[in-house]
Design a protein around this nucleic acid. Structure first.
Length: 1181
RNA sequence: GGGCUUGUAGCUCAGGUGGUUAGAGCGCUACACUGAUAAUGUAGAGGUCCGUGGUUCGAGUCCACGCAGGCCCA
């Protein structure tokens, strides 16, 4: 049996062949099966969405996942990899809407929800085959045959079970969140709708800088040192209608603020105001700076001011102030209201650097208020529901309207019509005639009242862009809308605590991005008002007094039965074939009628009359838990009232965060499997998932299991184009993964992506980089293999014999084996640390530098010369072991190529029973074979050789010309011993006869002395410069004295001295007078370049060998062919060389005859340096 | 605006705990070598280590403030 030899390797074709081999031999399946019973390594696949084509970045992300799963398999772990699909969500809905040319509003009107969802279901898997294809082509091993699918009824049922568990724990509640809302059409708007062209309009609104009166207490006392009048904090708003519901003021902690004494421009009363220092110029004119406060008379145009003090926002945090418009009081947490808090969104771009906060009408406001426990200003309706101060039509509630009406009367405000308490719309939603001379909108009325009451510091028109409804063109409001939340804040500290146990790669994503997110956690808003998603399983009575959270299909069935019995529903759709929208597969399935019959029998047979439907009794394909079917189900409350489902869908991130449970239809089935596969040992996704999947996995695991969901995580970066720009189809810089893999094969593509940058850095993807990897790494490795295969085949080396004991192998064999074991150790450590890049780099450096460029180069002759003796066998065995081990180490990253390499080797040797490298085991480190000294001295040999090469180069003496000796000055005994051990290697590598050591007793070495800065710096500190100068002044004699005596005294300053010890300096030899020297670090090499007559002849012999070898090759001779050689007489040099080295030449070129002849027919002319030589060469038979 | 992250040769990247002459590969130039040859060796050119301050005897490395790119969030 022969080792496969390849003329030219087609990497992409090779991968396809290996892929077919894997498929045929079920290698992936076996890689899991053969590990049955072993410890498991749990991996979770973050589900991709198949509604778009996969991109090159998916190759990157999936390569990372694949590498560690394969690595752990090699280590003997069983790694079950269940694939999955993310199938719900807005992107799919938007895509369908785009394709159908409809908008969300049309759903339920021009298209039924049923049709719409059917369309989504169909769209979502549109690119599945492309994904599957890429998965296989790139060699990502994941179980595609039994994936979890998030729209599956069983998956949804699992979600429901989890939701119910959260509900029962009190973690699921209905609250509100601030969203864009259009009173003119009575509906919320999505951010997508808000981004429609024309929605943002340029409008002029009334803006107010309001004065919030500071309450004097211990903390605020520093503001009352010398104020004139009351102390106020100035806060700016462009929505004065939100002022009655103000409950806090936000400042920036790091922003500088000032206190200024001045006069209110409307009431002319003395006031002392606080605002951001950077914005003083906006309200106070520089030219009034010098006016005296005492000179001010009410009505003066120029208002004097005086800066009292400056401080940071941090000092304001916690201050209390009086409610600006005390019309209503918060009915909970009232003691927390009306204080200054820190807000990270506060800027000094405009306004006063203080932001008026109204938790019911601003998203930021809502968030910071929540974080600081500030209450919102709301009222309770007759049912006890919390309502904001503005109703859903955009009008102030009666309580506020009455007070505004009072204000209008009290301050004699002229309006275009008499205003009742029900007339205060916050925007013009009633189409009032704005051109009426006395028309005043609510904002204006509020500003007049505030001016009168000495609460407004500045009122002006402000032009800005403001969003409007795309239907009615009326302004929208940011308004609290109902939503269901998961109370993640309840477990915040536990989330943070457990996060600290997760190994994040990179660490900063875990502690920084993710950690900060947890620190600023708000409750998880689950609600989505869409159609294609997991429905929220909560049914409620209209008054909200009674509700039920459904946790399973069985439970739903039971409740429907109750509802049917109560006459609320007429039939149970779950028990009717096709009742709730049977999917296509359903018709092919067993009819539920049969099922029902069976159940009936069961029920009759059962003793328990109340025998219930049980899990497993349902045909999950005969109904559909999606909208609209689930909305048609009306349940009945304990008190007999109908309960309708809350129409919300849940956030799709819940779907994916639930995958550890729902992928197994847990808790309904597979309890054991779930328990064995939770939590994950490892997951990997893009860093953009930090607040997505990483968070939802973590949150659900902590809330449901009080555990992490994953122990190790790689958050990988983006794949950018070669210029560092984001790839996009629009820009045309997107890379097609199929094309790339088709051209370069998956191995080089994967290797490039991994070796080039750590996964968590962004990758600048450059096709040229793959070419380079292919040439440099795969090409070199393949060359090495080819070299091995060529000679192993000639010699019939099959590695059947016993291994030559390592101790009996050559220095270079033992060296490469030592390096190999060091490599195994390093690679394992890097993989264990989830750092594939360092692993790949280590392997690559080993292959190109150590194995190919040093070991093989140095040992070529051993492979092609002579019989298959023990030395040759040792060489083959060594190289074989290196190749096989490298294949194993690299197989997680380049799975196809390495398997082929392994199989090509193993096919002949049969050393392994495994059908594939991926069924093999990761090599053990053989510590006893690692010889650090040996590695060091080989490094020394490489350095010396390099120095000699460089000297030859300078003298233009070719390597083929032998030289007589190298001289190395020896400064310490160890170096000498090290060098002696590798002497032969060096001499043959650089073609020199002897290596001599120059012990420094003669004094002919010129030495150099350098301070040991690290040591001296610690001792002398600031005086180091003096010491350095003194050391540099030391002459050859001083250095010799120091070496002799071990210390040296130097002057230090005026009349101080210090004694330097041998360790304080570094002494190296720099030059040998009269020799050609080169040095690197502390190593110096001198070369004797005298070419004697004999050396010259030997050089000539080598020249002849070289030319004849070339001729053999050019003539197309086989390596083992014997030849006869005839040379033209006439060159004395040639004749002399032949006399002296004829035997050597004959052996090298495998000549059975080599002689000079007077006449040559059929001659080829060899070109030598100084003459041409006609020769004739023929094969000897 | 906030959080995180990156910035070192034309390109891609290394540069524990500070130590004085900042490296590798590719690319470029020149030369050499040639039973691995679409390989290899040697040498050369190529650097305000993003900027500005600071700490220190000494900063690519530590600190502060910026600038530019990226991601996420507002």
């Amino acid at each position: 049996m022969k080792y496969n030899e390849y003329k030219q390797l087609d990497y992409a074709g090779l991968a396809e062949e290996v892929r077919a081999y894997w498929k045929q031999n079920r290698v992936f399946e076996k890689s899991v099966e053969t590990r049955e019973g072993n410890p498991t390594f749990v991996f979770y696949e973050g589900p991709p969405s198949a509604n778009g084509a996969p991109g090159i970045h998916h190759v990157m992300a999936r390569a990372v996942k694949d590498i560690f799963c394969r690595y752990k398999t090699l280590q003997g772990f069983q790694v079950v990899r269940k694939g999955g699909w993310d199938t719900h969500g807005l992107p799919i809905e938007l895509q369908v809407e785009k394709e159908l040319g409809i908008i969300k509003d049309d759903i339920g009107k021009t298209i039924s929800v049923e049709e719409y969802n059917a369309r989504c279901r169909e769209t979502v898997m549109r690119f599945k085959h492309q994904w599957d294809d890429l998965t296989e082509r790139m060699g990502y091993w994941v179980d595609l045959n039994n994936p979890y699918i998030t729209f599956d009824n069983q998956y949804i049922e699992s979600n429901w079970a989890l939701l119910k568990k959260l509900y029962d724990k009190g973690y699921l509640y209905k609250g509100y969140t601030i969203q864009p809302y259009s009173p003119s059409d009575g509906t919320g708007l999505s951010s997508h709708e808000l981004n429609q062209p024309g929605c943002y309009k340029e409008v002029k609104d009334t803006s107010i800088v309001a004065q919030f009166k500071v309450t004097r207490d211990a903390q605020s006392d520093f503001l009352f040192t010398r104020p004139t009048g009351d102390v106020f904090i100035l806060a700016w708003t462009t929505t004065p209608w939100t002022l009655p519901s103000n409950t806090a003021l936000a400042v920036g902690e790091k922003i500088s603020y000032v206190q200024i004494n001045t006069f209110n421009p409307y009431t002319h009363q003395p006031v002392s105001v606080v605002l951001a220092k950077a914005l003083v110029g906006k309200y106070f004119s520089e030219k009034n700076k010098d006016l005296a406060l005492t000179d001010y008379k009410p009505g003066d145009k120029a208002i004097p001011y005086e800066m009292v003090q400056e401080f940071t926002g941090r000092e304001l945090v916690g201050l209390r102030y009086e409610q600006l418009m005390p019309y209503l009081q918060p009915f909970y947490d009232a003691d927390k209201a009306f204080q200054v808090i820190a807000g990270d969104f506060v800027t000094t771009e405009d306004g006063t650097g203080v932001v008026h906060t109204s938790p019911t009408f601003g998203a930021d406001d809502f968030r910071v208020a929540k974080q600081h426990g500030i209450p919102a200003l709301t009222v309770k309706d007759e049912l006890g529901n919390e309502l904001p101060t503005v109703d859903k039509r955009g009008k102030f509630i009666n309580e506020i309207g009455l007070r505004l009406q009072e204000g209008v009367q009290k301050y004699n405000i002229k309006t275009h019509k008499p205003l009742g308490p029900d007339d205060f719309y916050v925007k013009n939603y009633t189409n009032e005639d704005e051109s009426h001379p006395d028309y005043k909108n609510t904002d204006v009325i509020i500003s007049i009242i505030l001016k009168e009451e000495n609460k407004a510091f500045k009122v002006e028109k402000y032009e800005h862009t403001y969003p409007h409804s795309w239907r009615t063109d009326k302004p929208i409001l940011y308004y609290p809308l109902d939503a269901w939340f998961i109370k993640t804040t309840a477990v915040k500290s536990r989330l943070i605590e457990l996060n600290k146990t997760i190994n994040w790669k990179p660490e900063s994503t875990g502690s920084g991005r993710f950690g900060n997110w947890l620190e600023n956690l708000v409750d998880w808003n689950l609600s989505r008002s869409r159609y294609w998603g997991t429905p929220l399983p909560i049914w409620r009575t209209e008054d909200g007094d009674e509700e039920i959270c459904i946790g399973s299909v069985v439970e739903l069935d039971r409740e429907i039965e109750r509802s049917v019995a109560a006459g609320v529903m007429t039939e149970n759709p779950l028990r009717k074939a096709g009742g709730t929208g049977a999917t296509a597969e359903a018709s092919e399935k067993e009819s539920l009628l049969d099922k029902a019959e069976e159940l009936l029998k069961k029920a009759i047979g059962a003793e328990d009359e109340n025998a219930q439907f049980q899990m497993g009794d349902f045909d999950y394909y005969s109904f559909d838990l999606h909208r609209p079917y689930v909305d048609n189900i009306v349940l009945v409350s304990p008190s007999g009232k109908p309960m309708k489902r809350e129409t919300d869908l849940i956030d799709v991130w819940f779907d994916s965060g639930a995958m550890p449970y729902a992928q197994w239809h847990y808790p309904f089935e597979n309890k054991e499997i779930f328990e064995q596969n939770f939590p994950a040992d490892f997951i990997a996704e893009g860093v953009d998932q930090t607040r997505g999947w990483f968070f939802t996995l973590h949150a659900l695991a902590v809330m449901l299991e009080d555990s992490v969901a994953f122990k190790n995580v790689i958050a990988n970066g983006l794949v950018l184009d070669k210029n560092g720009n984001k790839m996009s189809k629009r820009l045309g810089n997107a890379i097609d993964p199929f094309e790339t893999i088709g051209r370069f094969g998956p191995d080089a593509t994967r290797w490039y992506m991994i070796v080039n940058a750590p996964p968590w850095d962004n990758l600048k993807f450059n096709i040229d980089g793959i070419t380079e990897i292919q040439r440099r790494f795969f090409g070199t490795l393949q060359n090495t293999y080819s070299f091995f295969a060529l000679y192993a085949n000639l010699d019939g080396f099959t590695f059947q014999e016993a291994e030559v004991p390592v101790a009996q192998r050559t220095e270079s064999d033992r060296w490469i084996i030592s390096r190999l074991n060091t490599l195994v150790q390093e690679v394992a450590a890097f993989f264990d640390d989830y750092d594939p890049t360092k692993a790949a780099r280590a392997i690559q450096d080993f292959v190109t530098d150590d194995l190919s460029n040093w070991y093989v180069r140095l040992n070529r002759k051993r492979f092609w010369k002579g019989e298959l003796n023990q030395d040759k066998r040792a060489a083959y065995q060594t190289l074989y072991t290196c190749l096989e081990t490298v294949a194993k180490l690299a197989s997680p990253i380049a799975p196809f190529y390495m398997d082929r390499l392994f199989l090509d080797l193993n096919r002949v040797s049969g050393r392994s029973q495994a059908e594939s490298i991926h069924l093999e085991f990761f090599p053990d480190v053989q510590q006893d074979l690692i010889d650090v000294d040996l590695e060091q001295r080989m490094h020394l040999a490489q350095t010396v050789s390099s120095l000699v090469h460089s000297l030859r180069k300078k003298q233009m003496i070719k390597v083929r010309q032998p030289l007589s000796r190298i001289l190395v000055p020896i400064l310490d005994e160890k170096t000498k011993n090290q060098l002696q051990a590798v002497e032969d290697l060096i001499l043959s590598e650089v073609n020199v006869k002897t290596l001599e050591y120059l012990e420094d007793t003669t004094g002919i070495l010129v030495k150099k002395i350098k301070p040991n800065f690290k040591r001296l710096g610690q001792v002398f500190g600031p005086k180091l410069k003096l010491v350095t100068a003194q050391i540099q002044q030391m002459g050859q004699e001083d250095i010799a004295k120091m070496e002799r005596e071990g210390f040296f005294e130097i002057p230090l300053g005026e009349d101080d001295t210090t004694v330097l010890s041998r360790e304080d300096v570094e002494i190296l030899s720099e030059d040998i007078p009269g020799w050609l020297v080169a040095s690197e670090g502390s190593l110096t090499v001198a070369l004797d370049i005298t070419i004697t007559e004999d050396l010259k002849l030997e050089g000539m012999a080598r020249e002849l060998v070289n030319r004849l070898q070339n001729l053999r090759k050019d003539s197309g001779l086989d390596v083992q062919d014997k030849i006869r050689v005839f040379l033209q007489e006439g060159q004395e040099e040639v004749a002399a060389a032949l006399r002296a080295y004829g035997a050597y030449i004959s052996e090298e070129v495998q000549a059975v005859e080599l002689k000079l002849v007077p006449e040559i027919s059929d001659a080829t002319v060899l070109e030598l340096d100084e003459f041409n030589l006609p020769v004739h060469l023929e094969v000897a038979h």
